[in-house]
Amino acid sequence: MLVNEYSKRVFNLAYQFAGSYQEAEDLTQDIFFKLYGALRKYDFEKNFTAWLLTLAKNHLIDTYRKTKWEKSHRDEFDERFASPEAAQGPESGLAQEADRKLIWAGLNQLAPETRMAVILRDLQDKSYEEVAEILGLPLGTVKSRINRGRLQLAKILKDKKEDVHGM
């Protein structure tokens, strides 16, 4: 069944992209509403997950362009994401938690297309080929876009760390 099978994936994609839990729930609902309407257009020879994620991606980026979610709109990286290793309390766990916090906030500074590519590859664990299929872009373009996004995030992390040490 569609909801059982795909709701978690679509919801997480929406949450990672939009950064707001409430917004992600509404977006997921919109995407499923669109999905039911578009099902008859689905070509059975295509990969269904990629097709669904393309539909989701289009809706997310279109909505982003229309509404221009504010940067402050992104939820705080809070207890929703609290991981067991941080709760155990080793120092490395805490440092990783701090990194995750910065990266989560930093995602909003990426251009929507770059952000989507990085999310699909590094958070949703899609292969480069799958990301290229979902985004409808050549493989080379996708790879360089993802690399650019990762570098941008790394620099955000580096700058923030330097700020902290400099204080």
Partner: peptide, 30 residues
């Protein structure tokens, strides 16, 4: 230094856990 931070970035990205769909949203989707 940048390579080290990049490695941590990758680790952090991979460490962002997936959330479960809330029962309310599930009901709305169904």
């Amino acid at each position: 230094g940048l390579l080290a931070v990049l490695a941590r970035t990758q680790q952090a990205l991979a460490g962002l856990p997936e959330l479960e769909v809330s029962p309310g949203l599930r009901a709305r989707l169904l």
